[in-house]
Design a protein around this nucleic acid. Structure first.
Lengths: 349, 349
DNA sequence: ATGAAAGCGCTAACAA
DNA sequence: TTGTTAGCGCTTTCAT
């Protein structure tokens, strides 16, 4: 009933000192069994719970981690947030969310706001870092982790899928299927995911002496994807790619829709489509999209591990760059392997 | 560079008292122009920013609001979270996220954890409240708001779309289109959204003396939706509904996929499908789903308003039950109005 | 308008 | 093992 129950009140009721109460609620402190029960009983009766903020002030650890995220319309992130939040909760931390979306002007300002909360760590999901941010966080002694982005900066860890390997897998696969006119629809070129995926694709093509047949930029956005598709496919049939790798699933859905419903092309017979991420709708029958899976469970686990390690042993911690391999999931938007007699429609270079 | 810059250090550098620094950073405090610039300069040079946690301790306001959410696989929520987070940031608050998903056992425990952070308010998105929770929050003096759920409980505000009106609109619309064999696939029956939408549909049917032709429960889940669809449509053609209202879009996508790809039915010619929410994929050509729009912008704005009002004037605040009207968005999964010559395929009761 | 002093609820030495 | 004593960084009377 009372507005706020303090440790002092519990102490008085139990007839002990306030520090005794503190110790009982501090895992691994030295308290006798008797003391523990006495205090816990009193706490129970009063409905006492420790004030995390007060604890944070004196201990220097708030058990809050900041999470900065930009594109919630890419359905990879809701899933990631959910898993990350759960994993953090399991470790006794909680996630303070910060949107760095279009409306919010400057990310640097957002970071300043976050740091005001004395957070224990900061996770950036698909957000570009500036050296200002890094400097600020380092000055504040706050560990930084890039989630689903890689950036070569001093002292910053990053967790991604192995985008280069993934891109190469797609390239090898399309080539094995018999495709020789392969197009690529790029994401935002400032993103490492985009660059690495494209580099992987190019590595595969180069290894087989096949040139990239067409390229457009979709910037990871709906409108960008639609326009890129028109630019690439609204041309005479003999100038069209027979396969297209789209830098992520979110764009690939709009590519598929535009190909089928606007341009009247058949997938995969006229053109095979491959995405990247394996977000849930990729498995929905309406899309049935071949794609490279990002293992979000593993990525989240590595993120949490990295964070915890850095918190527990700040001294001998070295920033890590983790790239997690993910499988190619072959579905109906492309031909199945082995590729005997596939992709003839537009084949024959 | 220094680990932590305090108000005291700024005060010393500016040659003023610590309280002066505090006042300069407190909007609406009385400080001379001269003092303000002097302090701000010193703060700037030192890179000082007020510690929100310390402020929270003494002021009793943390400027953190808790957000408890369960189903992130329903794409209504990512959007809502993004907007809510942005709106709260604009008001100087930040969102501490708590997943109450399958893995997390008890919601009551989650709420206890949240309260430990001395949050200023608690928003529940599609989470069932218990009287225990309400009691705890009230004891702690924490305002509660139900987002997208309605529940008759003392002292709890709720913000929803007008689900009853929405359900009725769907009913009226389907009847006007000429449908007389209308089925309903229900969500989780513990949810007010489910109950209200169904009640609205029934009100429309009853007004026209049309019985509900079929009913299954999908529990707002993928598997539930698929099984409900089979149960309702994997029967002789003359026992099939000619239209089905699905309690939300998330399920409707699986209903559509199952109808088309598994059962080989044509939408809307064999059966019209209507959903609820108007999440982004509903507008994607592959689904093109007729649905009732939930105005998430308005819902978020009402949520923030309600929260702010209760914070600022706790005395004369009365919990509000807000239901926001949303339009029926007619797309290709159903027939367009006026209904001349539509729905003949299975029509004629 | 400004400064001094008290204290928010807790943890962390230090004694006992 | 337990109690005593200082603060953590800030806001807030109360004087001036």
């Amino acid at each position: 009933m009372s507005e706020k129950v303090t440790a002092l009140q519990v102490a008085q009721r139990a007839g002990v000192s306030q520090s005794a109460v503190s110790r009982v609620f501090t895992p691994g402190a030295s308290v006798s069994q008797k003391m523990a029960t006495k205090v816990r009983d009193a706490a129970e009766e009063l409905g006492y719970r420790p004030n995390i903020l007060a604890r944070a002030m004196v201990s220097g650890r708030s058990r809050i981690v900041g999470f900065v995220v930009a594109y919630l319309d890419n359905y990879f992130y809701p899933e990631a947030i959910e898993k990350l939040s759960n994993a953090m909760q399991a470790e006794g931390y909680h996630v303070l969310m910060f949107m760095a979306s279009q409306t919010t002007g400057n990310i640097d300002d957002v970071v300043d706001e976050i740091l005001d909360y004395q957070i224990d760590g900061l996770i950036f999901a698909s957000v570009a870092m500036s050296s200002t941010i890094v400097a600020r966080c380092q000055a504040a002694g706050v560990p930084m982790i890039l989630f689903n982005r890689r950036q070569d900066m001093e002292g910053v860890s990053s967790i991604t899928s192995d985008n280069f390997a993934g891109g190469r897998k797609v390239g090898e696969y399309l080539i094995t299927c018999g495709h020789r006119r392969i197009g690529y629809i790029a994401g935002w070129e400032g993103a490492s995911t985009q660059r690495d995926r494209e580099a992987g694709l190019m590595a595969a093509l180069t290894a087989h002496d096949i040139p990239l047949f067409a390229r457009e930029v979709g910037n990871f956005r709906k409108e960008g994807a639609i326009e890129a598709t028109r630019a690439m496919f609204d041309v005479p049939a003999n100038q069209r790619p027979d396969a297209v790798f789209v830098a992520n699933d979110h764009m690939a859905f709009f590519v598929l829709d535009t190909l089928r419903h606007e341009l009247g092309l058949k997938v995969p017979d006229d053109v095979a489509v491959v995405g990247y991420d394996d977000v849930p709708p990729a498995a929905w029958p309406a899309y049935d999209l071949t794609t490279v899976r990002q293992r979000s469970n593993t990525m989240v686990q590595e993120t949490v591990d990295t964070f915890i390690r850095q918190i527990e042993e700040p001294e001998d911690f070295r920033p890590r760059q983790v790239a997690i391999d993910g499988p190619l999931i072959i579905r109906g938007s492309s031909h199945s392997l082995p590729s005997k007699g596939k992709a003839q429609t537009n084949a024959g270079i």
